[in-house]
Design a protein around this nucleic acid. Structure first.
Lengths: 207, 207, 207, 207
DNA sequence: TATGAATGAGGTTTCATTCAT
DNA sequence: GATGAATGAAACCTCATTCAT
């Protein structure tokens, strides 16, 4: 049997979508099984319990998003700081507005962060720290250690926050601004904006 | 009887904390009643159902946070753009890291945004749009209409995103950076940083 | 205070309508009190409990219907059997299709007969046996004791059944025939029909 | 497993008896499950909710009563009107006084008619209209269209009412007359009485 | 005489999990 | 390797009744 169509895989795929949409608690084992075309007992049979399925979903979702939109995916040959920021912002924005499986990771992250389970510790360690370091080292190098560590951290947060807002603020943007999604062009403009804005910010901070 | 100690008020207070911590669905009527020292049927007696209690909690939480930390609370006599941004950022940061009742609103907002209920529509309209407008008009005035509306919106998102990150990113910051809360001094420095960084960003964008 | 507008009376009146419509169990004390413009505790205060209110309602409803439409209300001077039957049928039909308070008794009776409470025993004794005897004696007299008691009883049931059908069959007639109520004229024709039909039946039985 | 002893079937059987005795609202899921020897969650597992179980009970009860006592069950070769009436009356009387499962349908009908649920619409359409038509056509044929439609309807109601009285009047007959049930012989005599009485009535009406 | 807050018992329903097959 | 029936715990909600005022 084609490995990607085993019951186990179908469960992970169906669960990804449902967990992303509703969060861990609101998603029911029954609806996941039904969406996967599997028996009600399938989750417990294949994964032991609901929470272990959730873990499996996380790994699946991160693998997809990280390989489809790596944070260093748009770096030129000899990248300057602005290139690093732009590459990071572009990847994150593409993930956030992806309507395919690559879009599941940000949605899961959003769910998870309001009600952290044990999964978040692992995710933070394996998935998010490396991305954060990617950005942190670029900023640190550019500032040439003339500034205290706290300042570097605040700059990083300013950059990450600008990107993350498009994920966490999704429901709000729909309501306050009325836009549900962004076109490819808009995504490009936003990524460019974040890079430019952040470069201006860092220059100002340096003085 | 002292009005602030009626069963109804005790329910709202207990529910605020529990909803903020766990979200609407995960919080149970039973634990709220127990925490309020009330009977299991008290919620239905005083509010009709769980959802109406939730609405009451929202209004309560917003009133407190908005009166304790208004977004225009640190404006000088003739404020420049940087003053607007600083006042906004300072209020938001203080709300986020308040350990008292003023801290409940951001936490409720975080919960709500991952699983929006009907409450969010009302909150967006009544509480968040005005704050957003406060910032938007300051930015628009400073940029003197030389730039397209999309640019203004992106700048606003850059500012809001920097602040909001400290709310939505809470669980992550704890895990990646290891800091759970910020001291008064740190809050002041972050607010100042966001104002400075954003001014630099806006100047860069203008060119 | 006008006696008919005391809280106690308003409760009885409101409860009559609601019990008639929904039956004992489905009617709630809360809605009765609200309809009567009284406090939620009023029923227990004035009547002790829900069931005692129910008893009070019965007496109220029977008094009204029996005085407005007595079964001997249309008897001529020297009545023949057909006159007795006609008078009985006319009274019952008028009660059943009354839209005022006189219509409450048949509706309560309908409710009660599918789920008898202790109230039914009393009602049967005080209200229904006398009416039954009214008809029974007329039939017995007309048949001149030439027939066994069982035959007399079956004839009575034939008469009563024809009338009662318009009460118990109400929901069904609406659905099968599509008529919700009867005009004054129709009521007269039905009463006349039942008298004629029954006289024919009794004559046939006698042979 | 023997199909008639599955949990689902045991639930229907237990529920039939309890719904017939107490009506929809008064019957509790808990007592039904206990009577069926099943878990409290069994109703929701097998039927979704209480109301769907109720529907299933209706179909079950009607199938049994209609196959055990069909309204045309006693028709001779070339039936006259009296034969139709007698066959109808005999079937209805047998249903009403059956102490087995065939007796559940009239009891359910009685309950339903004092507090109609959506089920009644369906029952009226599927179960009762055909029976009513069976009688109606026989009467219409016998009267040779010399009489207005209203007269035909009133004659039908006279016949149906005489039968139905033994169902709806059950609680009353117990109290006023003191007889709880009828023997086989009595049932036969009542059916014969209704046929004779009705023929006399119809003849009288025709003149 | 009357009230409004409060309560406890009990209702239906949901759902993750188990177990025999 | 997989299933469908079954379960127990716990969720929200309803409602007649009580009690202090």
């Amino acid at each position: 049997m084609n490995e990607s169509h085993t019951t186990k895989n179908r469960l992970i795929q169906a669960a990804s979508v449902i967990f992303a949409e509703k969060g861990y608690r609101e998603a029911t084992v029954a609806e996941i099984c039904e969406a996967a075309g599997a028996n009600i007992a399938a989750v417990n049979y294949h994964f032991g319990d609901k929470e272990s399925l959730y873990d499996a979903v996380w790994h699946h979702a991160f693998e997809i998003t990280a390989s489809e939109y790596p944070v260093d995916g748009s770096l030129p040959e000899h990248p300057a700081l602005e290139d690093y920021i732009h590459s990071y912002a572009r990847a994150i924005m593409n993930r956030i507005f992806s309507e395919g499986p690559a879009g599941l990771f940000p949605k899961l992250l959003h769910q998870e962060m309001s009600n952290p389970t044990l999964a978040l510790d692992q995710i933070a360690e394996e998935a998010l720290k490396p991305q954060s370091r990617f950005l942190g080292e670029a900023v640190r190098a550019a500032l040439e250690q003339k500034v205290p560590e706290e300042t570097i951290r605040m700059c990083m947060h300013s950059i990450i926050g600008q990107c993350a807002f498009y994920n966490f603020g999704r429901a709000l943007r729909e309501r306050v601004i009325g836009k549900k999604t962004l076109s490819k062009d808009e995504i490009e403009r936003v990524a460019r904006h974040i890079a430019t804005f952040s470069m201006g910010g860092i220059k100002e901070i340096q003085q």
